[in-house]
Design a protein around this nucleic acid. Structure first.
Length: 443
RNA sequence: CGGGGUAUAGCGCAGCCUGGUAGCGCGGCAGUUUUGGGUACUGCAGGUCGCAGGUUCAAAUCCUGCUGCCCCGACCA
């Protein structure tokens, strides 16, 4: 992408409403624009990051055996009356009436709808296990939306729903999602820690929140320090191995880790002092097992091997990609701007022409741009006629992992400068070598 | 929902107290400058001063009501 033809409305000054780094930087980098309290438009750069986050989420959901579908944002009130949640959900639910005065709502979550879909088609244990998920916009009319994408009213959510014939099956479904979540966040460069959590209005009694430690996190959390050094299962992990999954989950839940709601101060105090982490964290995902809470009132019944009908055992599993984008920036930024991990960066490389309009640098940049693009490297070419200072500022702000500086002096020696945003390291090398180096990076 | 703020150009702000018809910086646009780590110059464009009503010869400024937005708290992916 040529910057001169892109839509990247960068702000030099910080909008006053932005208090935390992620909100500030997303506005400054031209990623999002607020349209109402807690409601944001994703501008092109923000959408690129969101798409990359979603892609990783999808890949790991699919790897774990979950199947993607897509449910609507608008739901019928009648469906929610079946579960009893239409009244119970309260003011957080956005209620709508259509032209025929029919009561509708903008979905805050999809347990009812997925249960309705399930019961329409599935009757036998032979069709289980089943895990269906989708990525769809949700709306929760929060009393106080804040911190930009961190607590918006409209947000994107990946929500998966598992169906099993008995508790053992449901627990395995829970374990698979648990492992998929560990992998998902790790692929984005985040250390997530599963913590015992309240299940809230979703219901049930088995739940973990996946927390990323960050000073600006909204949750107060307590955990064992060793979690930070745990190794996440590799891509070859076998999701069908019941004992194997249980072993991984067992390891990741053995040591102390809890949010403030479930905090047991006495148990925490027994940890060696140097192993105690008392910090703040961002919740990027949560998994629930809730059994028959919806299948029973909504009569989602399956016939077991014994020929008897029973309500299906369910769980639900959420990840907030829009919040994840914010969490990533909270973790990966410095004074100059964002420092995207390669896996989610909006562009892998940026070409900075330090002498725009000079034939030698222009030609070298054009060639680099063509070769990188041909190699499949997402490249942003800063071809604006600006002073180098502005180009460095822009590149640092939007946080592209690799910057290629093309200036007349080094070009005279047949070299360009390759700079790594993450650590500021730099290297002089021939343009062809820079292309070769980057061809293996990113997507 | 309780408490506290705020609303003037795309963004950050001044002007309001002591009414006289709007200004600064950044950004944008047109040129100049061809620049190696946020560096320059010249010119131009851009605002129903959140909305409604009131007081007044005259309202961004004073009064009343409303709305949006932000921050702290209680609640949530």
């Amino acid at each position: 992408m040529r910057l001169s033809r892109y839509f990247l409305p960068i702000l030099r000054e910080t909008p006053k409403e932005a208090e935390i780094a992620s909100h500030r930087l997303m506005l400054r980098a031209g990623m999002i624009r607020q349209e109402a309290a807690g409601i944001y438009a994703f501008l092109p750069l923000g959408l690129r990051v969101l798409d990359k986050v979603c892609r990783i989420v999808r890949e790991e959901q699919n790897r774990s055996g979950a199947i993607e579908l897509l449910m609507p944002t608008i739901q019928s009130a009648d469906l929610w009356r079946e579960s009893g949640r239409y009244e119970a959900y309260g003011k957080e639910m956005l209620r709508i009436k259509d032209r025929h005065e029919r009561e509708l709502l903008y979905g805050p979550t999809n347990e009812e709808m997925i249960t309705e879909i399930f019961r329409a088609y599935v009757r036998s244990y032979k069709d289980l296990p089943l895990n269906l998920y989708h990525l769809q916009w949700k709306f929760r009319d929060e009393v106080r939306p804040r911190f930009g994408l961190m607590r918006g009213r409209e947000f994107l959510m990946k929500d998966a729903y598992s169906f099993d014939v008995d508790f053992a099956g449901a627990k395995h479904a829970y374990n698979r999602m648990f492992v998929a979540y560990l992998r998902t966040f790790a692929r984005m460069g985040l250390k997530s820690i599963p913590m015992v959590a309240e299940s809230g209005p979703i219901g049930g009694n088995l739940s973990h929140e996946f927390i990323v430690l960050a000073e600006t996190g909204e949750s107060e959390v307590f955990c064992h320090r060793d979690y930070l050094d745990f190794t996440v299962p590799g891509p070859d992990v076998n999701f069908d191995d019941v004992a194997g999954m249980q072993a991984i989950v067992g390891k990741w839940t053995e040591l102390y880790a809890a949010t403030s709601d479930k905090h047991d101060a006495a148990a925490f105090a027994k940890l060696p002092a140097e192993k105690q982490i008392s910090a703040r964290g961002i919740e990027v995902g949560q998994v629930f097992y809730f059994g028959t809470k919806y299948s029973e009132p909504m009569k989602a019944l399956v016939t077991g091997p014994d020929g008897a009908e029973r309500p299906v055992q369910m769980g639900s599993y959420g990840i907030g990609p829009t919040r994840l984008v914010a969490a990533l920036i909270e973790v990966f930024h410095d004074d100059a701007g964002i420092r995207w991990p390669d896996a989610v960066a909006p562009f892998t490389a940026a070409i900075l022409n330090l002498k725009q309009g000079a034939s030698e640098t222009d030609a070298a940049c054009e060639r680099l741009y063509a070769e990188l693009t041909a190699s499949g490297v997402d490249t942003l070419y800063d071809d604006l006629d600006q002073r180098p200072g502005s180009k460095f500022a822009t590149a640092d702000l939007i946080g592209v992992p690799w910057q290629i500086l093309v200036g007349p002096r080094s070009l005279a020696e047949g070299k360009v400068e390759l700079k790594r945003r993450a650590d500021g390291s730099r290297e002089m090398l021939a343009p062809a070598d820079a292309v070769a180096r980057l061809a293996g990076q990113g997507a």
